[in-house]
């Protein structure tokens, strides 16, 4: 197992490099003089000159990439001109909030989605299946930002069960309970779409598995139906569910951008959107690379989980 983890970690290096190349190339598409474009309205002659020096903007594409990469490897993601502080500091400050939000959502949607899918498959065409299928359909069709707005309207404004927005109250203690109170609605709104997708997939994976010969073997042995479903079938279905969990984690992270906007959650998503609107290019670039790198690491964990589940992979 350790060998496998190491192998996956090593294989992440080219992926990370590839990601940095892609981000770099996208940013190189910016029309016009790069320094002015990056600095936008902060483009004083001194700033332009400093940036040209720092990033080698007067050089060709390839040397520029390596200069940029070299800086990044040393933890220097550049400087946000709009905020006037290092990009990495800003990203790290914001990342915690996103992690809490997206992490909670991810756990929620994985558990709910798989459970709903299994129940739905096991009760195929029963009322539970129909109800779940309908809820799932609405879930995957509703834009998460609209859902979030409606939740605010109903649960915060009308019923006053939860705070309208934010991560912490402006005054008062920062206890876990307060955090959960603020977290509940955004995490749920964020989880809904992914839950739907996972539930659908889990249902069809289960249906696929339940028709397999080895399920018939288990039944022929006299194994109880509950065990057939929750052990034999679910275990085999997880092999196709887990990769989707990995992909859905990316969707949760993506959806977090909208949810952070709607609920005024102080995460990286909001930071990125603000940065784009302010044309704070280096902040966008740094933020994207940072989150993408975290996502790569997360996917390695998914692969490891998959390998623990499926002995055929460890070769």
């Amino acid at each position: 197992m350790t060998g496998y983890i190491l192998k996956r970690l090593v294989s992440a290096i080219p992926v990370l490099l590839g990601i940095s190349v892609i981000v770099f190339l996208i940013m190189a598409m910016i029309p016009g003089d790069p320094a002015t474009a990056i600095l936008g309205s902060y483009a004083t002659p001194e700033n332009v000159e400093k940036l040209n020096r720092d990033l080698g903007l007067d050089q060709g594409l390839v040397p520029r990439y390596f200069i940029w990469l070299g800086h990044m490897v040393q933890g220097d993601f550049g400087r946000s001109f709009a905020l006037n502080r290092p990009v990495l500091d800003e990203v790290l400050d914001r990342f915690g909030a996103t992690l809490i939000l997206a992490g909670t959502s991810f756990v929620l949607c994985s558990l709910l989605g798989v459970a709903a899918g299994v129940v739905s498959a096991a009760r195929q065409y029963g009322w539970a299946d129909k109800a779940i299928t309908f809820v799932v359909l609405v879930g995957i069709s509703i834009p998460s930002f609209f859902l979030g707005m409606m939740m605010i309207l109903i649960f915060a404004v009308q019923l006053r069960w939860f705070p309208v927005s934010g991560m912490w109250p402006i005054y008062g203690d920062r206890t876990l309970w307060v955090l959960l109170d603020h977290l509940f609605m955004p995490a749920l709104a964020l989880a809904v779409v992914a839950t739907g997708v996972i539930a659908r997939l889990a249902r069809s994976a289960m249906l696929e598995v339940l028709r397999q010969d080895f399920i018939r073997t288990a039944r022929a042995k006299g194994v109880r139906e509950g065990r057939v479903i929750w052990r034999h079938a679910l275990r085999a279905a997880m092999v196709s569910i887990i990769p989707v969990l990995g992909i859905q984690a990316g969707f949760v992270l993506s959806g977090a951008v909208y949810i952070e906007m709607v609920f005024q959650w102080p995460g990286v998503g909001r930071m990125l959107v603000d940065a784009i609107l302010k044309r704070d290019i280096l902040l966008v670039q740094g933020g994207v690379v940072f989150i993408a790198a975290c996502y790569v690491m997360f996917n390695i964990m998914v692969d490891v989980a998959q390998a623990m589940l499926d002995p055929r992979i460890k070769t």
Binding site: V15, G18, I19, I22, V23, I26, M27, A28, M29, I30, A249, G250, F251, L253, S254, G255, V257, G269, L272, V273, A275, I276, R279, I281, V284, Q285, V288, I291, A292, Y295, V296, N299
Partner: peptide
């Protein structure tokens, strides 16, 4: 390997 919106945001940013 990117959460899809990062790529979209990067493209829009550029």
């Amino acid at each position: 390997g990117f959460p899809y919106i990062l790529l979209a945001l990067a493209i829009v940013a550029a």
